[in-house]
Amino acid sequence: MAVVVVTDSAACLPADMVDELGIAVVPLHVLIGDRAIREGVDRMEIDYCADTVTTSGASSGEMREVYEAALRRSGGDGVVAVHISRQLSGTWESGRQAVRDMDAADKVRLVDSLSAGLGTGLPVLAAARRARGGSPLDIVYDAAVAAAGRARSFILVNRTEQLRKGGRLSSAAAFFGSELVTKPLLQMVAGRLELREKVRTRAKAYAKLVAAAVDAAGEEGAAVGVQHLGAPEAAETVAGQLRELVPAVRELIVGEFGPTLGVHLGTGAVGVLVVPGGCG
């Protein structure tokens, strides 16, 4: 058999990649009033501006169910679970509790991706490709940890009110001030979402976003992800610029932020995720 890689729905990986690589996905939840809806499983229509909409991670019981199924599928070779940053969600902690409750806990390795969206998804791909190639548990785990350590994530949002309300924005960004006349560019730092800089116009903000990604990619090639919420044209424009400006783009994935991230980022958000060296 082979090691099985698990992630959560906040990784936002394309369904065809998930199927091709045999990745198991734990659904996170969008809470609309008193209803809990499973991301990627249940149909949902979301008003991203509504105060009654929030999110929650998976429970330890849900995590354990997926881990045990993945372990059986691996034939005992093991499981590597790569999850959204523990600074942003309780999902990783639920995973740790699930592993403690399992009989074969030594066969399940947890990885904090230190990010979200494709910042989690690209390290998942790095691990899953090693697993598909027949690598043992330690090598698959090391591939995920290494890719997560190299990954850099940058996000341009219209407003930060939803992030602050949900506690996803570092206190270091509490001085935003006159946010209506600026465009905040955020970045992931050690698993936390922090302010990188404020830009006066959206055009300049996109230029800063692209420049940050190009600088992070380096000269040796990189895997790149571009994500958006309700801004497909902007995402395609950014992706086109990165194809031209990043030397030797090894792969480029363009997609949407899923609902559990969209609730906090708001409509119009565009993010770029870069893994120098790629996820091969």
Rank of each mutant, 00 (worst) to 15 (best):
K208I: 01
L156H: 05
L195W: 14
G117M: 08
A213M: 00
D215G: 04
R64N: 12
Y67D: 05
A81G: 01
V82Q: 13
T201F: 11
E220D: 12
T182Y: 00
P232Y: 06
A24T: 06
G78P: 00
V79C: 15
G76R: 05
E256P: 06
A11D: 07
S178C: 11
G225N: 03
E68S: 06
D77R: 15
A143H: 06
A50I: 00
I139A: 11
E251P: 04
V18T: 05
A173S: 14
S178K: 10
E244G: 14
L245P: 10
R72N: 15
A24V: 09
V30A: 07
H29Q: 10
L13W: 10
P259M: 02
V224G: 14
A36P: 03
L186I: 01
V214F: 01
L110P: 09
K204I: 05
S56L: 06
D16P: 13
L122R: 04
E68K: 06
V157C: 08
L242C: 11
T237I: 05
A234P: 05
A50Y: 02
A147P: 08
T182Q: 13
I46Q: 04
G149W: 05
R64I: 12
V25K: 06
T7M: 09
V157D: 05
D77T: 09
M44P: 07
S74I: 02
V246N: 08
R86E: 08
S178V: 12
V214K: 02
D106S: 12
R100A: 11
V199M: 05
G22H: 12
V3G: 00
F175Q: 14
E45Y: 10
E219K: 07
L169F: 04
L118E: 10
G240Q: 05
T260G: 02
M63L: 12
A205F: 07
G266I: 04
G271P: 03
A105C: 06
V157H: 10
E62P: 13
V111R: 06
D42L: 01
L252P: 01
I37A: 11
R243G: 10
L193K: 12
L118W: 09
E197N: 07
R86N: 09
Y206L: 15
A248G: 11
H228R: 12
V124T: 02
G255N: 13
L195Y: 14
A223V: 01
N158S: 13
D142H: 12
L114C: 14
S85V: 02
E194V: 13
V181Y: 09
A211K: 09
T91I: 01
P184T: 00
V199S: 14
L180I: 08
Q241L: 04
D47I: 07
R168H: 03
G218Y: 12
H29R: 13
S135M: 03
D47G: 02
D19M: 11
S113I: 08
L88G: 11
R150V: 07
L114S: 15
L273P: 02
P276F: 13
A212Y: 08
V189W: 14
T260N: 00
C49Y: 07
S135C: 11
P247G: 09
R132L: 03
I23A: 13
